[in-house]
Each structure stands twice: as C-alpha cells, then as structure tokens.
Design a binder for these strands. Structure first.
Lengths: 139, 139
DNA sequence: CTAGCTGCAAATTCTTTGCTACTAT
DNA sequence: ATAGTAGCAAAGAATTTGCAGCTAG
C-alpha cells in the first residue's frame, strides 16, 4: 500500500472511515498543486481506480469540507474548487489571462479587514477575497 | 407612462432597445435597496406585468451586465445577485446570522490590494471581497 | 420593414440523492 | 455484525438556448 497522504492522515485523525476511494481522492487533493474542481479531481482519481464515480468525489469533498479538512472556493467560473485547508490562511490572485492562481498572505490586509468590520459594528468571522489581475510584462 | 428609472436611462445611453419588459426589470433593479437574485427580480417584475418570463430576466440581467450597467455578485449561496453598477466601487459585509448585506468603501483597502498585486508582479484589474461577520451585541 | 426580443419548453451544467449491494471497523 | 459507503441513474437547482411569433425603432 502506498504511503498515506497528508490529507488521509487528517481524515484518520478525525475518525473518518477510510475507503479505497477516499484514500485516492485524499491523495489527489493532497498532491494537487493547483485548485482542482470536482471534475478534475475525478479525472485524476480515475487514473488510479477507473471505477470511482463522480458522485463519490462530490460526497467526499463535501464530507472533508464539513470536517474542515479541505476548503471550497468559488472563483467565479461556476464550479467549486478545492484545496487542503492551509495551515495559515491565504488569499488568491487569479491571472485573468492564463487562469493561473497565486496564493498570498498579507497580515496587514487581514488586520484591516477586521478593523473595517469592527468599525461597522461587526465581528469578522470569515472573509473571501480574490484579486483579478494581469501579469506585468517587463515592457 | 411612469418615469424612467436610473437604470433605464443608462440602458438608453448605451443604445439598448427598451422593451416593456426591460423597462420593468430595469426599474426593479434600480429601486431595489437590497441585492436581489434573478428569482426575486422576476417576482417583483411579475407584480407589474404578470407575463414576464424568468428567461427574459436572465437574458436581461446578463445583457446589462455585459454592458457594465449592473454588477453580478456571488455571495456563496449558489445564486447570482445583482445591483446597479455603483458610481464608486464598494465591497460587502454579509451578516451570517441575518443574511443582511452592508456596503462599504475603504480607500486604504483598495490601495493595499493594488500594492499586494504589484508586489507579486501583477496589475490589478478587478477584485472581489466579502466579509462574513456577526453583529456585535452591546454585551 | 426587420433585426432583435419574448415566452415556452427543452437542454445544459453542476451538484445532490434514493436505492441496493458492499465494506471498514 | 452493522453502520456507513459506493455506484448508478434519476432528481434538483440555477441558468441557457432553439424556435416561432411579436415589436421597437
């Protein structure tokens, strides 16, 4: 048996029942450097077990999301995209020309968001931010 | 004929053909103080002309969005919500308990976002940010 | 007049779910 | 053992679209 993926171990910690399908799906998400959608996760999973159904992928990512193990993003293209919940929160820049996604953290930004909310009488519980941008070409 | 809504005038400026249905839909969006989704816009439009189909609402908001007259938002509940494109850009705080949406502008935030993008080699073309929060009760 | 719009229903796309057989624990 | 899971196909929800008749300009 191949070694456990990071996400599989997180699932075990939460006491989730680990089926063969879930192991593969967990591994696919763990190894993904990008932010794959369900169809893409399914495509990669099927390469390792051609019997996995897309319904199982949907059920699995939903389950993992409910346990806080993966994060769901909606980048505006209509389908949900996933990544292992990062240790440190980060936001995304989407290159509108290439679709490439860059992650970043900015503590100043996080602080400012909290302040804005407080100024309006709210306590921030979550936020979502995406920057849409184009690469600056060196002239 | 009732007077023209703000959004209807914007449509005319763009040279859009103004049908009865479009006038009503424009007016509904113009007068909405909230951020109605297509179903809600349709519901309000039907009160003034019970023949308007929801397909027309979909087509109309899409058209107006393509002309930059309305803005589409996805607040994470699966359906798109609309508002007349504001003069000055603003972001949203969503009260996760009540669903209430508060608009705000923060120049400092806008600036910071541009800086973050530039720092990573990008030129910001757009952004989306929603703060999810709960009202601070006075103890 | 005629390009463009509308209503209707069928089609798409993404996601969820009922059911029966199967499997992790 | 047995509660939870997988596959399949059908159901849903939001949105789009083909078509034939209607309408703004």
């Amino acid at each position: 048996m191949p070694e456990k993926s990071e996400l599989e171990m997180l699932c075990l910690e939460k006491g989730l029942r680990m089926t063969g399908q879930r192991r593969i799906i967990a591994s696919v998400i763990s190894l993904a450097g990008d932010h794959p959608d369900v169809e893409e996760i399914h495509k990669r999973a099927v390469q390792r077990d051609n019997g996995i159904s897309i319904a199982t992928v949907y059920r699995t990512v939903k389950l993992m999301e409910e346990f806080g193990l993966v994060e769901r993003h909606e980048f505006g293209d209509g389908r949900a995209r996933f990544e292992v919940t990062p240790e440190a929160h980060h936001d995304h820049i989407i290159d509108v020309e290439t679709g490439e996604i860059v992650e970043f953290v900015d503590p100043e930004l996080e602080l400012l968001q909290r302040h804005i909310a407080e100024r309006l009488g709210y306590r921030l519980v979550d936020h979502r931010m995406e920057l849409f941008a184009v690469k600056i070409t060196g002239r």
